[in-house]
């Protein structure tokens, strides 16, 4: 474990390739549209845009590390936001004194986080105690969470918040957007959890071989419960950011974020069958995506083309990260007909 050895290793990792991709995309966009892409205004607006779905991707990452998936992240985000929004609109109004609205805001945030935690417990219980495949458990629970949000609001948007709410999604601290700070904090937190705590190591180990984890006397049920609770609470935070940026909450906001979050996690090198994943990879994947979409936006490329490019990027990265080309060559030569 000399520094030189680990450096040599790093160039072979999928994260290193992602770093190159991120730098290339950034460089390319800077060259193509130097005065606009590199403008302070664009950089700030990017920093406001990506944290909400990037946090969902972090939630996806930890569940994928166990070989699971959380398809309920957007449902949890919206349900949390709707609950927070209802508390804010019921008990406070824009004319309220700042201190009072701050109280209701903190109560709303607490309630939202509790929703995320409860949703996580439910998902975790379905996966751990009832043995449902995570993809089905969270698909079903996601519909239930979205459904509650619809039932509570009748399907329409909840709005009319005190000004303090805007801080979460639109505020800046020392010129740094608050959503970016939240994302950075959560990314560092998740990185530390996954690499520096007993729980985090158990997550990777379980993902690598669930049966061996059972025989190694790991408390699997408690671990899975924690994983889904963390995913749920991360989703709640993303929901609050979405609510603040949209200045409203609605049951079907961010529906495109679900597949985007899965896409970013996989792009970031997380093994969807469990056992491997690094937060740095996910962060680099998020940045690449954001550079790409902002840059394309500058170049007047439509939103839809971005989706196209994301998909191409995902498959391209998979082809590079796995030995897909070797498989292709083998299937061409070995096929008897």
């Amino acid at each position: 474990m000399t520094p030189r050895a680990s450096k040599a290793d790093f160039t072979k990792t999928p994260e290193f390739r992602l770093l190159i991709i991120a730098v290339l995309v950034f460089g390319l966009m800077s060259v193509l549209s130097p005065d606009r892409f590199l403008s302070a205004q664009n950089l700030t607006s990017m920093a406001f845009q990506f944290p909400e779905f990037a946090i969902l991707a972090l939630a996806m990452t930890i569940t994928m590390m166990t070989g699971g998936i959380d398809l309920s992240v957007v449902g949890v985000a919206n349900l949390s936001a709707v609950v927070a929004a209802l508390i804010l609109t019921q008990f406070s109004d824009p004319s309220m004194p700042a201190a009072q609205s701050a109280f209701w805001l903190s109560l709303a945030i607490t309630a939202a986080m509790c929703i995320g935690a409860v949703a996580g417990v439910l998902n975790g219980a379905l996966v751990a105690f009832f043995g449902l495949p995570p993809i089905l458990a969270t698909l079903g629970s996601g519909l239930v969470f979205t459904g509650f949000a619809i039932a509570m609001t009748g399907g329409s948007a909840v709005m009319g918040f005190p000004d303090a709410v805007a801080v979460i999604g639109n505020g800046q601290v020392w010129g740094i957007p608050v959503p970016l700070i939240l994302f950075a904090a959560l990314a560092v937190l998740l990185h530390l959890i996954l690499t520096r705590t007993a729980f985090g190591l158990r997550v990777s180990m379980y993902g690598a071989n669930p049966l061996a984890a059972l025989y190694a006397a790991i408390d699997i049920n408690r671990m899975l419960l924690k994983v889904y609770v963390i995913a749920g609470m991360f989703s709640s935070i993303a929901g609050l950011i979405i609510m603040s940026r949209a200045n409203s909450a609605k049951a079907d906001y961010g529906s495109s974020y679900l597949l985007l979050a899965v896409l970013i996690a996989v792009l970031g090198g997380v093994n969807p069958y469990g056992g491997y994943g690094r937060v740095i990879g996910v962060v680099l994947a998020v940045l690449s995506m954001q550079f790409l979409s902002s840059g394309l936006n500058m170049l007047q490329v439509s939103n839809f083309a971005r989706e196209l490019i994301w998909g191409v990027l995902l498959i391209l990265v998979m082809v590079i990260n796995t030995n897909a080309l070797a498989t292709l060559r083998a299937s061409m030569t070995r096929s008897p007909r």
């Binding site: 896409l263 989706e307 994301w310 191409v312």
Partner: peptide, 10 residues
């Protein structure tokens, strides 16, 4: 998942 984005985006 990738082709979903590609087909729709295209």
């Amino acid at each position: 998942l990738g082709t979903l984005s590609v087909f729709r985006g295209f």
